[in-house]
Amino acid sequence: MAKPYDLRHYPGFLGVTLLCLLILYAPLGVVAVYSFNGSQSITIWEGFSLRWYVDVFTGPESAKFKQAAWNSFIIAIAAATIATSIATLAATAVLRAGKFRMRTLSIGLISLPLMVPEIVTAVATLIFFNAIAFERGLMTILLAHIAFCIPFAYMPISARMQGIEASYEQAAMDLYATRRQAFTRILLPLMMPGIVSGFILAFIISLDDFIITNFVKGAGVETLPTAIFGAVKQGIKPNIMAISTMLLAVSIVMVTLSWLIGRKDQKNLIQQRKKK
């Protein structure tokens, strides 16, 4: 039956999406342009130059930035992976294990890191690590990050799971699938967009964190935010803009690559679904 309109599209939604992308990229576009500025200042344009990119790799602080970027990346990947796993299991328990006494309490506990202002978590965690004589270093940063990443991973995962009917897994189990099989073969694939969303949110929240990291890190251990914070707060410097622009470029390249690779897999997936 022919529809009078296509329900996939609402007038204006494309416009809003493009506006959204414009808002997201405009400030960074400005940063990218000014990273090629010959002058020190962010406000005065003095001609095209690559000096800040050279500075990033050869300047006195290049080793520090490289190490910091590496630390940030490793911590963000590890924290997001662990937090997403914990959140997925927890969401399954909360939404797929009936009503039980600890349920509401669990939801509260999972949301807890979200509700405490960062500075409080920072001071409290530092006091706590000191109280148990845990030496500060990369490990303390990772542990702290895992904790505050969990709610960010949990929210999209649980939102997604609420939309998936239990009948799928029930059907699978009626057909003699074990619970583990129902979980890994049915629920997890259906959960993927939620899990990916959760992972991305956890990843970027870890990558961004300054306050907690700055308190719980050991001396000399830097993440990218702690390494650049002072320089940026006193007026963003061109070498920082160059770093940001490169980060942006690297992520765009990585995403494009993974998309190109992923296209093949998705084609297969679509075919499978069609068969179904």
Binding site: F129, R136, F215, A219, T226, G230
Partner: peptide, 24 residues
């Protein structure tokens, strides 16, 4: 040499009093 940074006198005091004394 390992250097750690802070952004105000008060932040320095807060960090030391929260237990960072003895590491610097």
């Amino acid at each position: 040499v390992v250097m750690d940074t802070y952004d105000s006198n008060e932040a320095l005091l807060a960090s030391l009093k929260a237990g960072a004394i003895g590491t610097y």
